[in-house]
Computed example of a mutant assay.
Amino acid sequence: MGLIHIELFTTLDLVAQAPGGPDEDPEGFPFGGWQAPLLNETTGAQIAAAYEGTDALLLGRRTYDIFAAYWPKQEGGPFAGLFNSVPKYVASRGEPDLPWAGSTQLGPDLVAAVRGIRERHEHVKVVGSLDLVQTLLREKLFDRLDLWVHPIVLGVGKKVFDTGAVPTNVTLLEPPAAGPTGTVFLRYGIADGIPRTGDMSAPDRGLGNGG
């Protein structure tokens, strides 16, 4: 069985809307392109490494349209050849035109469709696609969650975890890595169970009154 990897760029308050450019999201979001001033070679190398071994993309409709308008026109760089060659699976409630070679619309049962993709591929990358991501998080239908957390707070915008998020344990798979502009790369894997609760004043916590 393959792995579903979610790749997201976020702010410190976990806004992940429209990092790439002012026109990326037409919903009136005032900070489109917030990531651009913070990009650096360290982050670029981390992103390139994260996509090594990718053999399929899983995209929401809006992200697909942005990618389909851009990547087929590109020839160089570490991503054009990869994105143009691997299968692209698109989650959409409508009947979209899918002109990008290798594109397939998923069926109405998204959960079953994603499970089928996992059976056919080793490393499936989910890029952007916040509505889709939130569904995968709610269904716990992911294996890896890569977050590039940028040192800014926006206060508005779509966040990684919405009000429908479910209690979930994750585990840090490697030490956090900070870049020169303060962006921190965090790689998590899904873990069993749900978060536990406890008492901070218990003796083994070292926070008792000492009396």
Results as ranks from 00 to 15, higher is better:
1 M>V: 10
2 G>Q: 09
5 H>R: 14
5 H>I: 07
6 I>K: 07
8 L>R: 10
10 T>W: 00
12 L>E: 04
13 D>A: 09
13 D>V: 07
13 D>C: 12
14 L>V: 07
18 A>Q: 04
18 A>F: 01
19 P>V: 01
20 G>E: 15
21 G>T: 06
23 D>T: 07
24 E>G: 00
24 E>L: 03
25 D>L: 09
32 G>T: 03
32 G>N: 10
40 N>D: 15
41 E>N: 03
43 T>R: 06
46 Q>A: 13
48 A>F: 00
54 T>W: 01
55 D>P: 05
55 D>T: 03
63 T>R: 00
63 T>G: 00
68 A>M: 02
69 A>Y: 00
70 Y>V: 15
71 W>N: 11
80 A>I: 05
81 G>W: 06
82 L>S: 07
88 K>R: 07
88 K>Q: 01
91 A>H: 03
92 S>I: 10
93 R>Y: 06
95 E>G: 12
95 E>M: 11
96 P>E: 03
98 L>N: 08
101 A>F: 03
102 G>C: 11
105 Q>C: 05
105 Q>F: 01
106 L>E: 02
109 D>N: 05
110 L>E: 11
119 E>P: 09
119 E>S: 14
119 E>R: 15
124 V>I: 12
124 V>K: 02
125 K>I: 15
125 K>P: 00
125 K>D: 13
128 G>Y: 10
128 G>V: 06
128 G>M: 06
129 S>G: 07
134 Q>A: 11
137 L>K: 02
138 R>W: 01
139 E>K: 14
140 K>V: 01
140 K>F: 02
140 K>A: 12
142 F>C: 02
145 L>V: 04
146 D>A: 13
146 D>G: 04
149 V>T: 10
149 V>E: 09
151 P>W: 00
151 P>G: 05
152 I>R: 10
154 L>I: 10
161 F>S: 12
167 P>W: 08
168 T>C: 11
169 N>V: 10
172 L>K: 02
175 P>T: 07
177 A>C: 08
177 A>T: 09
187 R>Q: 13
189 G>L: 08
194 I>A: 14
194 I>S: 10
196 R>H: 11
199 D>S: 06
201 S>G: 10
203 P>H: 08
210 G>A: 09
211 G>K: 12
